[in-house]
Amino acid sequence: MYDMNRVENAVGQDEIKISARKVQVYYGDTHAIKDVDVDILDKTVTAFIGPSGCGKSTFLRCLNRMNDTIAAARVEGKIALDGEDIYDRRVDPVQLRAKVGMVFQKPNPFPKSIYDNVAYGPRIHGLARNKAELDEIVERSLRGAALWNEAKDRLQEPGTGLSGGQQQRLCIARAVATSPEVLLMDEPCSALDPIATGQVEELIEQLRQQFSVVIVTHSMQQAARVSQKTAFFHLGNLVEYGETDDIFTKPKDSRTESYISGRIG
């Protein structure tokens, strides 16, 4: 529909999934995000890196309008998903969030059974016509989140009884169950041990086959391992955005270089 928004770019034939232009975010009087322009590609892992408080999580939360829930937050500029402005008056955030799933920093399963955790999204969005279909969605999502083998015999046990890494994968399964087109991950591994982190990273690589993944991370090694594109934020500005390899080997901006070499942050 809005073909003019589609631009040729460096990474193969990938299409632009989300395009952000001149995005400003204010928390009350604080100008948290300044003039951010970024194009997020389909079937690509994009990493947001930067020191604490640089606005990367804030920007991530703009992409599925989670900032709407914060009364003091105000978003300006244009963010388009497949060319449609997500801040348009006619857009219901509920529909948007079914398309743009989210995984949070701390694993936050509902205090319900594993099955109900995964089935919740499909249920409220009416994605399954009957129990068999729902069962299938749950199994597919749990397999997609590499949790099926561990969880298949205890689907009715509470999701809060799983280990931290399993809980986070359950949250990923829950997000995947609504068949989103974009998956936002806000430091998904910061509460996990190295083994669980490795599992989630492997998972991210698989998820990329189906949809676009945006991950906020504090770990530059993680960004280098999992992402194809990296954006570096500093003090609310998008300093540099490009191929992950380029960012880490030949950064253009001196601030990026300082950060990845450990001098700021």
């Binding site: 599925n64 989670m66 829930t69 509920v94 529909q95 948007l96 969030r97 079914a98 799933g101 989210m102 995984v103 949070f104 701390k106 936050n108 399963p109 509902f110 205090p111 919740y120 999204g121 409220i124 969005h125 949250c171 829950r174 997000a175 169950a177 609504t178």
Partner: peptide, 18 residues
């Protein structure tokens, strides 16, 4: 009630009332 539960529900596309 921890805010993370609200975020989780909103994150999968539940409405405020749900």
């Amino acid at each position: 009630v921890p805010p993370s539960i609200r975020s989780a529900a909103l994150g999968v596309g539940a409405s405020k009332m749900q």
